[in-house]
Design a protein around this nucleic acid. Structure first.
Lengths: 353, 353
DNA sequence: AAAGTTTAGACAAACGTTTGTCTCATTGTC
DNA sequence: GACAATGAGACAAACGTTTGTCTAAACTTT
C-alpha cells in the first residue's frame, strides 16, 4: 500500500527558507549569495556551500515572489489583433525571438479589434506584473499605464514609440516598378479599415502615382472590407472589376494574401498572370515565393520590425532614451507575377490573329 | 514649474490596503466583498460602498500577490518549437483562443528543438507560477513538474495526455483517393526527423499502401531533412526524383508546405500539376486553397487540436479525470492538385501524336 | 433579563522573495 | 590591552493578497 503523496510530484518545491534551514543559514544570506548582491561580505567557503545546495535541490527562485517584492518581472505583454495569421505571426515571432534571447518571458493577448478588449488588456497585463507592452497593429485609444512600443501603430501617442514601414518609399518602389514595365492602367486596392496600414499605404501610393505621372481612376479602385486574413478578401472585388470591363494591366494589391486571391480570381476569369495582368503583392510572406507564379512584392521586414520594437522597449525599461519612431525600409522583390505591360486590346488582336 | 511625479502615470496604483483605508475597513473585508467569498456576512450597504470605491479607483487585484498567496495563477505555459510558422501557429492559435475565452493568460516559449531548452523551460515556467503546460510538437524527455497536455507529442509519458491526429485514417483517405484516381506509381515523402509526425505518418502510409495493394519503391521515396518551414524543403528532393527518370504519377507530400515546393519543382521541370502529376498535401494550411492549382490535401483540424488540448488541461487542473489520449479525425479536401492518373508513356505518345 | 446566536468586521499569519539595519565575534592598530 | 574597524551573518519589514481565528455589538429566545 502506498501512501498518497500530497502533491503529484512528491515533495514541495525547494524555496529559500528550506535551503537556509538545510544550510543552517538565514534566507537572506542565501539570497545574497545566489544573487551576488554587491556590498555583502560572505566567505568563499559559504558561497560554495550555498551554490552546491541550490544545485542539489534544483532551486529556482520564485519569479512571483520576486516580482511582488518589487523587482522587474522580466515579462512583457504583447497585444495583437489575431493569432495564427501571417503578418501578425511574423512580427510576433520577431518580438518573441528577441525577448527569449534576453531571458524575458511574454504574455500574448489578442483582441480581434474589439475596443473593449483593447482597453481592458493593458491593465490586466499590469495586474500580472508585466514590465511593458508591445502592441502590434492595434488601435490604442489611450496611453497604456505601462511603457509601450507599437509596431504599425494606428495612432501617435505621447511617450509611445512606434516602429513602422516607410510607406512612401514602398509606394515609389512598387509603382516605379510597374511604370518601368510600361503599366499605366493600374488598379489600386485599399486595405480593410481595421488595418493600421490601410490609409497610409493608400495615401502613399496616390502620392507616388502623382509623382510618377500615373493616372488614377475611381473605376479601378478596389476596397477590401471582409474581416478575414485569407485570400478570399480580394476575390469578389477583382471579379467585379473584371466584369466591369474597365481596362487595366496591373493590380497593386494591399498585401500578399490579397494578391493570391487576385491571381486566383484573374485565373478563373481566363486572364493570365503576368502575361495579361501584372500583380504586385505587399509583405513578402513566406509562401509568396512559392506561389505559381511567384509573387513580385514589397518586402516588409516583419520579424525585424518586431525585434526592433522589443529592443526599443527593453532600452526604455532600462531607462535609456529612445526615439519616438523608427522607420524601416521596404525592399522590392521581383519575381514572376509582374511583366511588361501588354495592352489588352493589343493582346486580343494578337490572339485573334 | 511642474513637480516631477514619482511615477510616470502619477499616483501609485490602487491596492487593497489603500481601498480599505479609504473606506475605513480592513483589507480582508474588502477582499471578501470583491471576491464574493462565501460564508462571510457583509451587509449590502457595505458591499455597495466597496464596489463603488473599487470602481472609482479602478482597482485590479494583483495576480502576482494572489498567486504568491497560493491561488491559481490562471496562467499556462505553451511550449513549441518555432514561432511564426504555419503548423505551430495554427495550433497555438487554437490553444490561445480557448485560454483567452476562459480568462487564462499564457506564456509562449519556443525551443527550436534544442534539448537543453526543452529541459529547462518547464521549471522556468513553474518559477513564474504557471498552473500547467501545453506542449506542441515537442520531444519531452521527462514528465514536467506541472500538469501537462501535449499536441502531437513525440513520446508517451505517464500522466501526460496527448492530442493527436488519426494518421492511419489520414493515410487511408489520401492513398484511397489516389488509388481511386488510378495512381499506382506514387512517390512517398518522409518528414524531417525532428517532426513528431514524421515516423507515424510514414508508417501509416505504408500500412495503408499495403492494405490498398499499392506498391512502394525505394526509388520513389523522398526524405526531407532541411530544418526549415518553407517550401524549399522538398524542392531538391523532387528535382532529384524527376532527374532520376523513375516513372511516377503522384506525390504524397508530407505537408502542404512541401507540396508547394513540390509543385514548383515539377512546374520548373516542365511537368504540369495535376495533368502530368498529382500532388497531395497534408494539413490544409490557410493558403492551400489559394495556390494555383489549389491543393488537394488532408485537413488536420489544427486549431481544434489546440483548443482540445487546452480544454483537457483546464479539466485536469479542475481535478476532473481526462483521457490519456484523444484522436482527432482528418478530412480529405479535394481540390485541383490531383486528377486521374495518366501514364507518362501514354502522355508522351499523346503529345507527339 | 440572562444566555445564546448571529452579524459585521478586525487581526494576523502566510505565500517567497529582497534589502536595510543590527549584532556579535574576530582582527588590526596604537 | 583598549579601541576601532571589519567580517559574517541574523533579523525583520515589506511587497499585495487570502483566509482562519477572534471579538464586540446586536439581535433572539426563553
Amino acid at each position: 500500500m502506498q501512501k498518497p503523496s500530497s502533491t503529484s510530484t512528491g515533495a514541495r518545491h525547494a524555496n529559500l527558507k528550506m535551503l537556509a534551514e538545510y544550510l543552517g543559514l538565514s534566507p537572506s544570506t542565501v539570497s545574497f549569495v545566489l544573487n551576488d548582491t554587491p556590498g555583502r561580505s560572505i566567505p568563499e567557503a559559504t558561497r560554495a556551500r550555498v551554490k552546491a545546495a541550490a544545485e542539489k535541490f534544483n532551486y529556482r527562485p520564485s519569479m512571483v515572489a520576486r516580482t511582488l517584492q518589487g523587482k522587474r518581472a522580466q515579462t512583457i505583454g504583447i497585444l495583437l489583433p489575431e493569432l495564427g495569421e501571417g503578418y501578425h505571426s511574423q512580427v510576433l515571432s520577431g518580438v518573441g525571438d528577441l525577448l527569449m534571447r534576453k531571458d524575458y518571458f511574454y504574455f500574448t493577448v489578442h483582441h480581434r479589434h474589439r475596443t473593449e478588449l483593447i482597453d481592458a488588456y493593458p491593465s490586466l497585463l499590469r495586474s500580472r506584473g508585466v514590465d511593458g507592452i508591445v502592441a502590434i497593429d492595434t488601435h490604442l485609444a489611450e496611453v497604456p499605464p505601462l511603457p509601450t512600443v507599437t509596431v504599425a501603430g494606428h495612432t501617435t501617442l505621447p511617450g509611445v514609440a512606434n516602429v513602422l514601414l516607410n510607406e512612401e518609399h514602398a509606394a515609389r518602389l512598387s509603382l516605379g516598378h510597374l511604370r518601368n514595365l510600361g503599366h499605366t492602367k493600374i488598379a489600386f486596392m485599399h486595405g480593410q479599415p481595421f488595418s493600421s496600414d490601410a490609409d497610409t499605404r493608400w495615401n502613399a501610393s496616390f502620392k507616388a502615382a502623382r509623382e510618377l505621372g500615373i493616372e488614377q481612376h475611381e473605376e479601378l479602385m478596389i476596397y477590401l472590407s471582409k474581416d478575414s486574413h485569407s485570400p478570399e478578401i480580394s476575390y469578389p472585388g477583382i471579379r467585379k472589376l473584371v466584369k466591369s470591363g474597365h481596362p487595366f494591366t496591373a493590380v497593386l494589391c494591399f498585401n500578399d494574401v490579397s494578391a493570391m486571391g487576385t491571381i486566383r480570381a484573374l485565373h478563373e476569369a481566363g486572364l493570365r498572370v503576368p502575361d495579361d495582368i501584372s500583380v504586385l503583392g505587399f509583405d513578402d510572406i513566406q509562401s509568396a515565393a512559392y506561389q505559381i507564379p511567384s509573387l513580385t512584392t514589397i518586402r516588409q521586414p516583419l520579424q525585424k520590425m518586431g525585434s526592433t520594437a522589443a529592443q526599443l522597449l527593453l532600452k526604455k525599461l532600462a531607462g535609456e532614451p529612445i526615439p519616438e519612431s523608427i522607420e524601416v525600409a521596404p525592399e522590392l522583390v521581383i519575381r514572376e507575377s509582374t511583366a511588361p505591360a501588354r495592352d489588352i486590346a493589343a493582346k486580343k488582336r494578337g490572339r485573334t490573329a
